[in-house]
Amino acid sequence: MKELFRTLGLAVNGIHYPDMITEENKITFLTGPSGCGKSTLFRILNGTLDPEEGSVLYLGQDVRELDPLTHRREVSLVSQSVFLFPGTIRENFRQFYQFRELPEPDTEKIHFFLSLCCLVADPDTDCTTFSGGEKQRVYLAVFLSLRPRVLLLDEPTSALDTTTSRLLLKNLAEYSKKEGISLLMISHDPGLADEYAESRILFGEGCRITGEGGGSHE
């Protein structure tokens, strides 16, 4: 397996991260108590935040030496707080794609990614009428459709019921394997991690790694 990320002596906002390695084309779960810096680590990994100390290597290269926009397009961070533009699903795809200077995706493509995210809806439905869980899936569908190489998912199932969460994870796991997308996921659902994690990083108090699955840290 090829090394995806390697962190070396990372520290930010008073949190000192233990060094860790994640591997390409794997589903890696990050679990641990709230406030231990998991979301901050994701921001460092996709280059929207620089660490105060230490560095992150992505495919062997220091993230700070990479073109930031190209890196973020390759390593997309799906944050915990969902944002959708006011309007229909199609308008959302259009607007997000405009920010990436891409043409609007066709209906078939929108349908495909919606169903991948377990959402059966007409692309012309107004998103403002959606529940939190539905919005979360549209949001995820947009990010997935942009075909990143790595997806950093910060609690992607937090607004979903258990059945839908599992189904979504099953679809995500299959799709990412097929398309060669590496998934790093923060989750507070131990059941999901048990079922889908190929590698696991457990954060303890003060961000000490307390365990792993799949040999993902040093």
Binding site: T48, T70, R73, S79, F83, F99, F143
Partner: peptide, 17 residues
């Protein structure tokens, strides 16, 4: 703020945002 951070995470430039 949420809109800006989301678009940044997606790879949009701060100028566009």
């Amino acid at each position: 703020r949420n809109r800006m951070e989301t678009l940044l995470n997606l790879g949009a430039s701060p100028k566009q945002i």
